[in-house]
C-alpha cells in the first residue's frame, strides 16, 4: 500500500513547512536535504579525491532535477570526487556567495550553471587569482575575458531549434504548412535561440509559414491557454512548434478539447525530451522531439579530471543531443533515465 508512503511524505512536508515558517525568508524550493550542504561542506581536498564545488541554478523544472541527479550521481567518492553541492534558488547573489565560499575553502575545481549571463567578472577574477579553475555547465556567461573559465559544457540551443525545423522541412515540407509557435519565457536564452534556429531551418521554404507566435512561459497551463487562443483565431493550423515539452503537452490538451487529434490533425514538434514528453511521443500525440540532454555529469567529470591533470581542454563542449520520432521513442522509453 503505497499511500502510506504518501501520507508520511505529506505529513513530513507539512511539518517541515511549518518549521520553515519560523524563518520565512528561506522559502524557495530545493526538495533535497543536501541542498544546503554547500556552504557547510568540508572541501580542501582530502586524500586523492578531487574536491569540486558545484552551484546549481535551482530546482525549477524536471529537466533541472535530472541535471542535478546526473551531477550528484557522477561526482561520487567511488569515482574519485568530493562534491560540495549548493542550490542558488534562482538567485545570482546566492550563487556568487557559494562560489566565494568555495574559493575560501580552496576546492580543486568550481563548476556552476549561471543563473543569468552577466555580472560574473569580479567573482571569476577572484577564483582565477586563487588559482581555482572554473567550469560552466548548461548556460554560458557573456564575459569578454575567456580566460576566466576553462570550459563551457552544454547544449547548443540554436542547433536544437534548427534540427526541429529541418525535420519539419524534410517530412512536412513541399505543401503549404501553417505553423504556430509556443515560445519560452520572453528574453530567455533557450527561447531566443530555439526560435532563431527554427526560423533559420525553414528559411527558403515559403510554403512553411509561422502564422502566430506567442509566449507560453515554458509551462503547461500557459501553453494550453495560448493554444486555445490560437485555435480560436486560426482554423487552419497544421503544426505546433513548442520550445519545450511542457508547453507542447498543454497544447495537446487544448487540441483534444477542440475535438481534433494531436499528432494527426495538428502535428506537434517540441524540444527537451523529458519523460512525459517522450510518453506523449510514444503515444503518437507528438510527432518529433529534439532532446536537450540534462545528463551533463559524465562530461563534467571528464573535464574536471583533465583540468586537474593540467591538460588543455576545449573552451566549448557541445553536449550531444539526440532526436526522436515516434518509433524511436517507443524503443527508448523503457531505458530513459529522466
Amino acid at each position: 500500500m503505497r499511500s502510506t508512503n504518501f501520507t508520511k511524505r505529506t505529513v513530513a512536508a507539512v511539518a517541515a513547512g511549518f518549521m520553515a515558517l519560523g524563518l520565512a525568508a528561506c522559502g524557495g524550493g530545493d526538495g533535497g536535504d543536501d541542498a544546503q550542504a554547500g556552504a557547510g561542506g568540508e572541501g580542501g581536498g582530502g586524500g586523492d579525491l578531487i574536491s569540486v564545488g558545484f552551484s546549481q541554478v535551482g530546482a525549477e523544472s524536471g529537466w533541472r532535477a535530472a541535471n542535478t541527479k546526473s551531477i550528484k550521481d557522477t561526482l561520487t567518492e567511488e569515482n574519485g570526487f568530493e562534491l560540495s553541492f549548493s542550490d542558488a534558488q534562482q538567485k545570482q547573489e546566492n550563487q556568487i556567495q557559494a562560489i566565494r565560499s568555495y574559493i575560501a575553502q580552496g576546492v580543486d575545481v568550481i563548476a556552476f550553471s549561471p543563473v543569468v549571463e552577466s555580472g560574473w567578472d569580479a567573482v571569476l577574477e577572484e577564483a582565477k587569482n586563487a588559482g581555482i579553475p572554473v567550469v560552466l555547465t548548461d548556460r554560458a556567461v557573456d564575459s569578454e575575458d575567456e580566460s576566466l573559465y576553462e570550459s563551457f559544457i552544454g547544449s547548443d540551443f540554436v542547433l536544437e531549434g534548427q534540427r526541429a525545423g529541418e525535420w519539419v522541412v524534410e517530412n512536412l515540407g513541399g505543401e503549404p504548412l501553417n505553423v504556430v509557435e509556443l515560445q519560452g519565457t520572453t528574453g530567455a536564452a533557450p527561447a531566443v535561440d530555439r526560435k532563431e534556429g527554427f526560423e533559420m531551418a525553414i528559411e527558403g521554404n515559403p510554403e512553411i509559414q509561422i502564422i502566430a507566435s506567442q509566449t507560453g512561459n515554458f509551462t503547461r497551463t500557459e501553453g494550453r491557454q495560448v493554444m486555445e487562443g490560437f485555435l480560436q483565431a486560426h482554423d487552419d493550423i497544421d503544426l505546433v512548434y513548442a520550445h519545450n515539452d511542457d508547453m507542447g503537452l498543454g497544447a495537446i490538451e487544448a487540441i483534444e478539447a477542440a475535438g481534433l487529434t494531436p499528432g494527426e490533425d495538428i502535428k506537434i514538434v517540441t524540444i527537451d525530451a523529458v519523460k512525459d514528453g517522450m510518453q506523449a511521443l510514444a503515444d503518437g500525440k507528438i510527432n518529433y522531439i529534439v532532446e536537450c540532454n540534462p545528463l551533463l555529469g559524465p562530461d563534467l567529470a571528464d573535464i574536471i579530471k583533465s583540468v586537474v591533470a593540467g591538460e588543455e581542454v576545449e573552451k566549448r563542449i557541445v553536449v550531444e543531443d539526440q532526436a526522436f520520432d515516434q518509433a524511436a521513442a517507443i524503443e527508448a522509453l523503457p531505458t530513459r533515465e529522466y
Partner: peptide, 16 residues
C-alpha cells in the same frame, strides 16, 4: 506565500 511553494516542492519532490 514564501514557504508554501517550498512545501509544494517537498510534496512533489521537485518534479512535475
Amino acid at each position: 506565500m514564501t514557504a508554501g511553494r517550498g512545501i509544494a516542492m517537498l510534496i512533489t519532490e521537485g518534479q512535475i
